[in-house]
Design a protein around this nucleic acid. Structure first.
Length: 842
RNA sequence: GCCCGGGUGGUGAAAUGGCAAACACGGCGGACUCAAAAUCCGCUGCCGGCAACGGCUUGUGGGUUCGAGUCCCACCCCGGGCACCA
């Protein structure tokens, strides 16, 4: 009588043994001396109070299988885990339940640690990272100082996204369709002084490297779109109306400092000075159709050009736009609004005067904050021109159209230039370059590339984050905290609730922020904002190997050995946030000489999303899958394997409670097949079993490499079914390789069976991934298909490698085939060796 | 609107241009059982037929090919991301 498969008992036993014998961890010494290092990284979780989510577990299991597989192939696998525990999410939760985050987070981390152990992942508990630990965020602050010194951290007055519910500023990346990513509240505009990392300086490099890094295509595409490179031209329109600016006025300073909105400003006589308005366009070929200009309401030049008659209306419009929240402002389906400034500019190509308008559909943050409107060939401009009865001119003739064809809507396609002076007849594609050259030759334009990417605002007016290591001194200005004074420890502030003031709760603790200036020794004041959580997670992978080092941010030698990360697996929800910032920080560290690579992750693979019985999982629907319960009922091996079996890993899938039965039954049958070890014969696999074994090893190996876990599991099931068929005696050599194949998916049962098979070492230390002989993966006889005119008419067993003549003879001898040929002429024969014969008749 | 995915049995899903539906769930029938659960065996895309077998079938419509779920063109639907980005 054999014992039933009892996963809970086995799993407890092996989890204890792994921990006691440190089987999953590397010592610092092993890290230093490993010969075949493999850094297997997964996205570290935010330790929520709700506990480990099934989405976390899906991600971790897929990554763990890959790591365990690498280890069975002889790699020294480093698979660390940590906690991304700072941030608004934790803080808001702490506020809600009334527990201080300094109490709450360690509790959550303990709970997560328990759960992460229970799922059977191969985590290295010797190298754990916790972003809220001063020994970690000390280096986050160090990182800020490196960027500051390199001129990549700037303090800017900026209109920012303000979440009125969280009372904080959000990065553009954290604004989802105009709402706060965390709480869903509509985001407003506010102007605050903030720290920015100038990631835009790296836009082109971040884009260029996408061409060669080995990442999921979907993720690369998302980054490419986010960076949003546009090639076009900058064109200067001269203002043709009286204009004025007090050279000392705020507007004049803003314009002079910001960028080249104007050229050739004269000394004093304002009417003889030249004022030019710069616009960005991707369609310089349409310049003859630019019948008006539109400036963003915030554009500083508006102050200079607006006529007295129009000033009241313009100001009213600007005030309305400034008060409007960003969602409404950026709604594409609302009616176009705008007002005429009373001023005119000259179209530099046609020489025609054009009206200068302001409208909120032009955004200050993109391009130059001003556009040349070409209503004939741009949908938004067309709508605006129609609304305000502005002239619409056709300058591109598409197929079947000519210079006089009426435009009922904007024609945005390619075509031949018309109404464009000397450029008439040119194809629009060619005209882009020719007209840009012409404009450049006349000093009124130039080639220009724009990016949608914005600088990264890292300031947060909140409590739960690393304080930004800056001191403000009345005498010295901005003074970075000296590196030897790090960390700037986050004080325990009792009332950490944010308020309307827009100032961090740290500003309430005067004993904390009142410090002496490190430069001059006089009284200074600490920066009271903390940094964005995304900064914590932008470099954690660099810290893991050096997690136990207090003296350096990362050990140079260890970093060279283990990085870039060999395999990174995670969710695509981080395609443009975390993953872009991590690349940026890595590039900066390379440029500053701290590391010698500029891309942090050799390979990145995005896993898919889990849904539950056809619906998205959500707390409100009450269909969230809690791993603990399932693990308790079925065991971690079954749960892990089911998660991987329910669909292609990189596409996600549908979680159904009933589905767990499949993998559970598989393991039960595997158990029953292997446990009666005394009865196992010693004969080597032969015949169809041998062939099936080799094919299975090949299939499972290929599938794991490609993250096709679902079909790998199916192949193992098929093999076990074949071994069990006919109630025959099972031989050890038939099942021992299967136990190894199963190990990455179901490590506990694999360990137990491996031990029952007489091995004394852990399967992950003692076993080799089975190899296969390609020649043995194929059977001697093949099932051969005979078609007549492409329709299946017979299947016949034939020996491998049969010649076309022999196959054809056999086919023609078949009664059913003969019936369909029916004496007709065989005109053509298609022969696919060992597969198919198609007889074309008639 | 743009950029990614995806659309195949009752369900989750397989399928280098070459046997559509592997593997699994569920269902049905049987064995074991006093009975039930568990387990084991068989059947299970749809239509016709006692059967051999035949016809139909991968969102829709065209096309390429000896042969298309797979390639090409047009379109519809679902999921995700971006979006007055000039």
């Amino acid at each position: 009588m054999i014992m039933d498969y009892r996963p809970q008992r086995i799993e407890e036993k092996w989890q204890r043994r792994w921990a006691e014998q440190n089987l999953n961890s590397l010592t610092d010494d092993q890290l230093r001396t490993a010969e075949r290092p493999f850094y297997n990284l997964m996205m570290f979780p935010y330790p929520s109070a709700e506990g480990l989510h099934v989405g976390n577990m899906y991600a971790f299991t897929g990554a763990d299988i890959y790591g365990r597989w690498q280890r069975l192939q002889g790699e020294a696998v480093f698979e660390p885990i940590g906690f991304d525990a700072f941030g608004i999410h934790s803080e808001n939760f702490a506020l809600r339940i009334g527990t201080h985050p300094m109490e709450l987070i360690p509790r959550n981390i303990r709970n997560f640690t328990r759960q992460l152990t229970r799922i059977g992942a191969m985590y290295d508990w010797n190298h754990v990272v916790d972003t809220t630990d001063p020994s970690y965020y000390r280096w986050t602050q160090w990182l800020f100082l490196q960027l500051y010194r390199a001129g990549l951290a700037e303090k800017k007055e900026a209109a920012v996204n303000w979440c009125p519910s969280c009372h904080t500023v959000l990065a553009n990346e954290q604004v989802i369709a105009g709402a706060c990513e965390r709480c869903g509240t509509t985001v407003e505009q506010r102007t605050l002084s903030q720290w920015f990392f100038t990631i835009t300086k790296y836009a082109q490099r971040l884009l260029d490297n996408l061409k060669w890094i080995d990442w999921s295509e979907t993720t690369k595409k998302a980054q490419e779109n986010w960076i949003g490179r546009s090639e076009g031209a900058e064109i200067w329109f001269e203002v043709d109306s009286p204009w004025h600016a007090d050279p000392g006025s705020a507007a004049a300073v803003a314009v002079a400092d910001a960028r080249a909105y104007h050229h050739g400003r004269g000394e004093d006589d304002e009417y003889e000075q030249k004022l030019q308005i710069s616009v960005f366009t991707t369609r310089p070929d349409t310049i003859f159709g630019a019948t008006f200009l539109v400036l963003a309401p915030e554009h500083p030049v508006v102050d200079w050009v607006t006529t007295d008659a129009r000033r009241a209306e313009v100001e009213a419009y600007r005030e309305r736009a400034a008060a409007m929240d960003l969602v409404t402002r950026k709604k594409t389906d609302k009616d176009k609004t705008g007002v005429f400034t009373g001023a005119y500019a000259i179209n530099p190509a046609s020489g025609t005067p054009v009206e200068i308008w302001i409208a909120d559909y032009v955004l200050m943050e993109y391009g130059t904050g001003a556009i040349m409107a070409v209503p004939g060939h741009d949908e938004r401009d067309f709508e605006f021109a129609t609304q305000f009865a502005l002239p619409i001119v056709r300058v591109i003739a598409g197929p079947g159209a000519d210079a006089d064809s009426p435009l009922r809507e904007a024609y945005v396609g390619e075509g031949v230039l018309v109404n464009s002076g000397e450029f008439d007849g040119l194809h629009s594609g060619e005209a882009i370059g020719r007209i840009t050259d012409w404009l450049a030759g006349h000093g009124v334009g130039d080639r220009k590339v724009n990016y949608r990417l914005h600088d990264w605002c890292i300031s947060r007016q909140r409590y739960w984050g690393p304080p930004i290591p800056i001191i403000y001194c009345d005498a010295c200005g901005i003074v970075p905290v000296p590196e030897q004074d790090l960390p700037v420890v986050l004080p325990h502030v009792e009332n950490y609730k944010p308020d309307e003031s827009g100032v961090s709760p740290l500003a309430r603790d005067e004993t904390w922020y009142r410090v002496l200036c490190p430069k001059c020794g006089r009284t200074g004041r600490r920066e009271t904002d903390v940094s964005d959580t995304f900064l914590d997670s932008a470099w954690y992978f660099l810290r893991y190997p050096s997690a136990n080092r207090d003296d350096v941010v990362f050990d140079r030698e260890l970093t060279r050995k283990w990085l870039p990360v060999h395999m990174y697996i995670g969710g695509n929800e981080h395609a443009v946030l975390h993953l872009l910032y991590a690349r940026f920080i890595t590039m900066v560290l390379k440029d500053l000489g701290h590391i010698d690579f500029e891309e942090p992750f050799r390979r990145f693979r995005a896993h898919g999303l889990l849904i539950k019985e056809g619906a998205k999982m959500s707390k409100s629907r009450g269909n969230v899958v809690i791993p603990d319960r399932y693990i308790e009922d079925w065991g971690a091996d079954t749960f892990r394997t089911y998660l991987m079996f329910l669909g292609p890993y990189q596409e996600g899938g549908d979680f159904r409670d009933q589905g767990l039965q499949g993998p559970f039954g598989f393991f039960s049958r595997l158990w029953d097949a292997v446990v009666p070890v005394a009865e196992l014969g010693t004969a080597q696999p032969a015949g169809s079993i041998e062939q099936k074994l080799h094919a299975t090893i090949a299939k499972v190996t290929e599938d794991i490499a490609a993250l096709r876990y679902n079909t790998a599991i199916a192949a193992m099931m098929e093999y076990l079914n074949a071994v069990r068929e006919g109630n025959r005696n099972v031989n050890r050599a038939e099942v021992e390789p299967l136990v190894v194949l199963v190990a990455p998916f179901a490590p506990h049962i694999a360990e137990e069976l491996w031990e029952l098979l007489g091995h004394t070492q852990s399967i992950f230390a003692g076993a080799n991934w089975p190899s296969h002989d390609p020649a043995k993966t194929m059977a001697d006889t093949v099932e051969f298909v005979v078609q007549v005119n492409g329709k299946l008419r017979a299947r016949m067993a034939m020996s491998r490698g049969i010649s076309q003549d022999d196959a054809q003879a056999a086919a023609l001898a078949d009664e059913n085939v003969r019936k369909y040929i029916d004496g007709a002429q065989v005109r053509k024969v298609i022969f696919v060796p060992d597969r198919l014969l198609n007889l074309v008749v008639g």
